[in-house]
Design a protein around this nucleic acid. Structure first.
Lengths: 343, 343
DNA sequence: CTGTTAGCGCCTTCAG
DNA sequence: CTGAAGGCGCTAACAG
């Protein structure tokens, strides 16, 4: 099997010739730059464009106009696929602004030198394409080290932030998410609510815990340290932590799990004791990793991370930055509750 | 917060001036086109490049050389994130060939008109960047409708195929995967192996079933229709199907589940009966959706779909096609068994 | 081995 | 309202 058709090579000059006008005129009608071009000329040009199958050459346009309309997006997509919605949000918002996304990806959740080097190379490639701005997106909310080259162009951080606070960033409202997850349980009448947190000290853990305590406080419920226990962020970690909570003399009637994977493990612990969800124990998760939460039985009520919105906000912020506007250094996007059947 | 640094604007002429040579010479050392340039000149140029922070302008280069070195990749990544490894494979292979990936994404598993239109627009944008070839990647193995514009440039299909067989395509070896998943169970000594298939008639279902029957045959085991049952491709579908199999008078001692989500449901059905995995029932899945398979308890032995390899094969095939070589119209990439703890 | 000379396809003043 | 002319940054013959 071989390649069939070759790309036509019609240029603007061809269109001009076919329409019997100058290249300037063609450029004007295509870019809607000049107001008063006779309708008749306009349609003649447009017809020539479509019959010849003319397609503007983005590279040439960028060269001449010194504007590429490209925005670069570097993401660690490969390692934590569920964050791809950032791409969707960014892409849609960019298109609406007549900007286009150049997506590059990194292999790793880099903190090490090799990863930084890889990122640098990727960004350089993006820079060679003369992107007007750069979006750096992480798969999980955390502090990152921004490669130096990123400074060559306006840069916005999505789902992450730099320790120095040098770059504008967009992050999820972990605290607010913790509040809604807990409130849902409170609303269902629970007063002894366990919280399974991460043993690692990460922004998600800190924020969600704070949300939990705030919601308790707002509801006039006491905070009991024994109801909070940590584990690693996996199903096994959740299983162990849930068992600890279920072993309590006065065991909780509801569990707020730090993430969906831990909730997956908690389900096992609960079911093993012959307890039912949500009858004996109500459960809420966090992250809405659909592969997990939607297919658990019963389906898990959880809090969705606003990846799509963060992607869109990233582009909007970047666009403003490119135009020299002032932008907030930290934006927080709220997380919403997804009601399913575990409460 | 505002944008800080502006991108420098050093051009090749600047480098030439700084190094005291002509632009041609700079171009030669940068592109390694001319063999015998004095080491001394070379280093002088390279130094100028780095002190000035020169960065080649890809657009200008493409314009002059009529080669963009870009390959377009259109994927439905957003809807089925786990297939992102296609990107990784494609990217790595492309970089090795000094080609770069321009990634675009579609919102939907399109078969409808709106989706096709969206794809068309995306491809056109890619074409304006003068990509030299196009990769169309699907998230699940199936027949797709290729937008007409794709014909303007060499195109290869990844994890999908067109009904007319007009485009070269790369697909997973579902049959082979079905064979290894079944064989693993046979190797563990099982002789009554149930198979949970998809009720929808899709390539994955057909292939995996064929693999199951072949493996049985190769092992000299009888094929019993009652041991094969279908359901929809979700945890619930797997749960129901597993229950049906477990209700059999002479129940199977092993279950090959059509995919990991169904295996997730099967686990529930098994555990509810107080049966243990793999003690009472061994289980294999398919797809290796890590969020599920790695975190199930016990971790699921499953078959991994070769996304990364398919991405790489796609780029390799496309590169050949671009160079006018003959390529096979259908390539099948083998699926490998991932041993965990459920057998 | 290095410099000169043309464009690549498009945009953009500036005249007409 | 439309055309002519120059140039964006780079590559590629072709001389020297």
């Amino acid at each position: 099997m071989m390649a069939s058709k070759v790309r036509s090579d019609v240029t603007m000059a061809d269109v001009a010739a076919a329409a019997g006008v100058s290249r300037t005129t063609v450029s004007f009608v295509l870019n809607k730059r000049q107001a008063g071009i006779p309708e008749e000329t306009r349609t003649r040009v447009l017809e020539a464009v479509s019959t010849l199958g003319y397609r503007p050459n983005a590279g040439a346009r960028a060269l001449a106009s010194q504007r590429s309309d490209w925005i670069g997006l570097l993401t660690e997509i490969v390692t934590a696929p569920f964050a791809v919605n950032v791409i969707k949000g960014a892409k849609d918002r960019a298109w609406a602004d007549h900007k286009y996304l150049l997506i590059a990806s990194t292999d790793d959740n880099v903190t090490d030198a090799a990863g930084l080097a890889d990122q640098t190379v990727q960004i350089e490639k993006l820079l060679e394409q003369r992107i007007e701005g750069l979006l750096l997106a992480a798969t999980w909310h955390r502090a990152i080290t921004v490669p130096d080259v990123a400074r060559e162009v306006p840069t916005v951080l999505v789902n992450c932030f730099d320790a120095a606070g040098e770059f504008p960033s967009i992050v999820p409202d972990e605290v607010g998410g913790g509040v809604v997850a807990t409130q849902r349980l409170v609303a269902a009448g629970h007063t002894r609510i366990g919280f399974i947190t991460f043993e690692d000290d990460i922004p998600a853990g800190q924020g969600r815990l704070r949300g939990y305590t705030r919601a308790l406080e707002a509801a006039g419920l006491p905070f009991e340290p024994t109801l909070v226990t940590g584990g690693d962020a996996t199903a096994l970690g959740g299983y162990d932590a849930a068992n600890r909570l279920l072993d309590l003399a006065e065991r909780p009637t509801a569990l707020f799990c730090g993430n969906d994977r831990m909730a997956m493990g908690a389900y096992d612990a609960i079911k093993e004791r012959g307890l039912s969800i949500p009858g004996d124990l109500a459960v809420t998760g966090f992250d809405n990793q659909e592969l997990v939460s939607a297919y658990l039985r019963p389906a898990l009520t959880t809090v969705a991370l606003p990846f799509e919105e963060m992607g869109a906000a990233g582009v909007a912020t970047l666009t403003a930055l490119i135009q020299g506007e002032e932008v907030p250094s930290l934006q927080t996007v709220s997380c919403s509750l997804l009601e399913r059947s575990s409460v």
